[in-house]
Design a protein around this nucleic acid. Structure first.
Lengths: 110, 110
DNA sequence: GCCTATGTATAATG
DNA sequence: CATTATACATAGGC
């Protein structure tokens, strides 16, 4: 059928909650994949933490999140930063990190 | 003239140092861009830390790296409120989780 | 760094 | 969640 494929997406907040959640899931996987590729190709250490609107925490780390963040605290040599607004405050649960694994495992098909 | 464009890249460590550095720079920007798009479209908080081989730290954060990092530590403390005053780098669950995560990625060959 | 051909990520569908 | 068309990222070359 016609009208499939990707349309140009407006770079702004996705209002519809369901659509936003779908996009979040897809792009989060994509981001983690890109990060893992960067680790493999360039032998670097990477840590990514994402807090969703609902306050759930998703993480990616190579070799692991803590070692990278601890290393940052020691050197404290920040380079870039991007900011804007937003600052909701909910307390995420550690167990939600398991969801990150489940997603990865499913995507990978293991 | 001919032979331009992108060839399919093997997903492995780039041996040539100069080439690896170029790829690192390009992909790092791409990763940060993806992250900022994710923040804009889905209103989430993201923190990324990258340590290059040379030990230099690159970071991306929305609203900033430290707030996201602290939020993670806060959630960990809430989850493991047994004892200890320094949960960072000591939480067995998160550590094990990310170890598994890394192993999974390596097994897959990403 | 900029440019262009080509591979990849992904918005809409099914 | 699988597909597919298409926007986007990016390897190789200047």
């Amino acid at each position: 059928m016609p009208n499939m494929g990707r349309k140009k997406t407006q770079m702004e907040l996705i209002e519809t909650e369901s659509a936003r959640h779908v996009t979040f899931s897809k792009r989060r996987s994509g981001l983690f994949k890109k990060a893992s590729e960067l680790c493999t190709m360039c032998a670097v250490e990477v840590a990514i933490i994402i807090f969703s609107i609902g306050g759930k925490a998703f993480s990616f780390g190579h070799p692991n999140v803590h070692s990278v963040f601890n290393r940052l605290r020691c050197s404290e040599n920040l380079d870039a930063s991007t900011s804007s607004n937003d600052a909701a405050g909910q307390d995420p649960i550690l167990h939600d990190l398991n969801k990150t694994h489940s997603d990865l495992i499913e995507d990978v098909g293991l």
